[in-house]
Simulated assay, not measured.
Amino acid sequence: MLIFLSAVFFLIVTPGPGVLSTAGVGAAFGFRAGLRYVLGLFIGTNLVALAAISGIAAVVLSVPTVRTVLLILSVAYLAYLAAKIAFAGSKIAFIEARSAPGIKQGLLLQAINPKAYSVNITLFSGFAFASDNLVLEAGLKLIIIAMIWVPIHLGWLYAGVVLHRLDLAEKTQRKINYAMACSMLLVVALAMLSMRGVG
């Protein structure tokens, strides 16, 4: 079980679209908006976990066309979120972010997030510690993952909120928002490269 705990920690703590967008929402829109977004991510990641447990995710992702469509949707949606974070507070009329991403946006991100699928498939298909009772093992894994997932995401949110609360000059805050958005796009590019290697 210790190996499973380590795997969960390192797979979740590494920057992916979920944690980076959480920090970005915190930095751009503050704590309350960030909490709603994290709740959506949490619901979404658990739905992806259920798809991994049931085997649906593995079957669906084994179809190259479906994988490609999910990747395209993921890239487009992450680019949209990155733009929303980058231009938070901006007065550029055609892209001004008037509302923060919320529960629905967090849920949608996890539904098309390649990292969410690969992490959950890895965690639920490997690291057996109660193979004589798969239901118990799956339940314990869900609890363990949540106990690690929640503090990590709240930590990233807090880091973003601290940046938000520093009351930095508008120009500096905009640069931070751009950096957060660029980091998300970099993760997308890495996910695309890794999925091309798998395909």
Results as ranks from 00 to 15, higher is better:
Leu2Met: 08
Leu2Asp: 04
Ile3Asp: 14
Ala7Ile: 00
Phe10Met: 08
Phe10Asp: 11
Thr14Val: 11
Gly18His: 05
Val25Glu: 09
Ala27Gly: 09
Ala28Cys: 01
Ala33Thr: 14
Gly34Glu: 00
Val38Gln: 02
Leu41Thr: 01
Ile43Arg: 02
Ile43His: 00
Gly44Ser: 01
Val48Leu: 08
Ala49Cys: 11
Ala51Thr: 10
Ala52His: 07
Gly55Ile: 10
Ile56Tyr: 09
Ala58Trp: 04
Pro64Gln: 00
Leu71Val: 06
Leu71Phe: 12
Leu81Pro: 03
Ser90Arg: 10
Ile92Tyr: 07
Ile92Arg: 11
Glu96Ser: 15
Ala97His: 11
Pro101His: 08
Lys104Asn: 05
Gln105Pro: 03
Gly106Thr: 03
Leu107Asp: 08
Leu107His: 03
Leu109Gly: 00
Asn113Cys: 05
Thr122Leu: 07
Ala128Thr: 12
Ala130Glu: 12
Asp132His: 12
Asn133Gly: 03
Val135Gly: 05
Leu140Tyr: 06
Ile144Phe: 11
Ile148His: 06
Gly155Met: 02
Gly155Asn: 07
Ala159Met: 13
Val161Asp: 00
Arg165Phe: 01
Arg165Trp: 00
Asp167His: 15
Ala169Gln: 09
Thr172His: 08
Lys175Ala: 11
Tyr178Val: 08
Ala179Trp: 02
Met180Ser: 11
Met180Tyr: 13
Met184Thr: 09
Leu186Arg: 04
Ser194Phe: 10
Gly197Ser: 06
Val198Ser: 11
